[in-house]
Design a protein around this nucleic acid. Structure first.
Lengths: 191, 191
DNA sequence: TACGAAAGTGACAGTTGTGTCACTTTTGGT
DNA sequence: ACCAAAAGTGACACAACTGTCACTTTCGTA
């Protein structure tokens, strides 16, 4: 019925991610994207009106993927086990954190037209937080977690932890282990 | 001897900071800068060859200012007091963290010429870490801090904490207080 | 008061990106 | 073999940014 496509949405999104991580929102161009996919710019315009629409679509897709992965922690019933697997997932998916930042930058600068899509994008990180609140709630119910610290702060700590630069090149295993301890027990010695 | 300058370096750097925080590295342009300072582009080129040189100069200045502020914690002899005042300083200076990210992005993309300046820029965050290692060392000496957790990780946690988005709008006081507790004691209840 | 140094300006040429569109290519069905 | 639909291309007009430079403005000093 028609000619075969030169690229799948999957491939497109892979390249978009790569460019966003390297160049951030303002450095992202259709020229760069087309070049890296070995396709003409015009071809991309067949599917997306401009970079804002494309990036928004990509972000929604990416976050939904990530939410699915996060759901995996629910197969554990103990809070500690959920915590452990959550940390492991986050450390396997370092990019998400940077991508969220890119999205926030985009919301600041784009001369947006599509209000609905923008709204959805704006609420994505919040959705992620809401999704993970079940996890914190479990911890509080099982009496494992301090009740007086805001959920958002605990989640923030966990999600942010991947962004801490490992300037001194500590081996990954040790880093992750110490990270888990820092989050659960803090840096102070118990008296 | 000469005509009066329309802007001081101080004013210039203020505007540079504002633009960098809003537009990040790739979105920073001399046009934007000149416009916001109500000066012609040409005037800026009198002092800086291009944006890389300007931003590098700015970053070095900004970090040196910040290091001076950090030195203030040394007026306390107790580790806990130093910790407290460090957190307060960081929360008064939220931008630094974002600016460091911008610098890192710049190092990735600029088609740099001035190798020396770039080197210096690259080492700035590390310098900050090294500077603060005295603080961690004090904590370990005074037996207040877990000895087996890498210094860089503890510092990373502290510095990164300002970047945690307060999605649920917790009041600043409570947020900071909880933050301090999270970092010092963690999120888990003591058994 | 007039001159030279430093500061500032605006126009020019060059580069890179954008969105669009007429045109070409590929493909499956008739 | 032919054709219509979908995919892809490349050229065009426009916009934004860059670096440069001849020129003008302002000011202290001789």
């Amino acid at each position: 019925m028609a000619r075969e496509r030169k690229f799948t949405t999957e491939e497109l999104f892979q390249t978009v991610k790569k460019i966003l991580l390297q160049h951030s929102y303002e450095g992202f161009t259709f020229s760069l994207l087309a070049e890296q996919m070995d396709v003409s710019r015009g071809a991309i315009y067949k599917y997306y009106q401009n970079k804002d629409v494309l990036i928004t679509d990509f972000m929604i897709y990416e976050m939904e993927q990530f939410l699915l992965e996060l759901k995996e922690i629910e197969k554990y019933s103990e809070f500690e086990a959920q915590f452990d697997s959550l940390m492991d997932i986050i450390f396997e998916k370092t990019e998400i954190h940077h991508l969220i930042r890119v999205a926030q930058q985009m919301l600041l600068q784009s001369n947006e037209q599509d209000k609905d899509r923008m709204d959805k994008l704006e609420k994505l990180p919040l959705e992620m937080y809401k999704h993970l609140q079940k996890f914190i709630l479990l911890g509080k119910e099982q009496g494992k977690v301090k009740p007086h610290i805001p959920d958002g702060l605990m989640l923030g700590f966990i999600l942010q932890s991947i962004a801490i630069p490992n300037h001194f090149g500590i081996p990954k295993e040790e880093w992750l282990k110490s990270m888990k301890e820092m989050i659960s027990q803090g840096m102070f010695k118990n008296r």
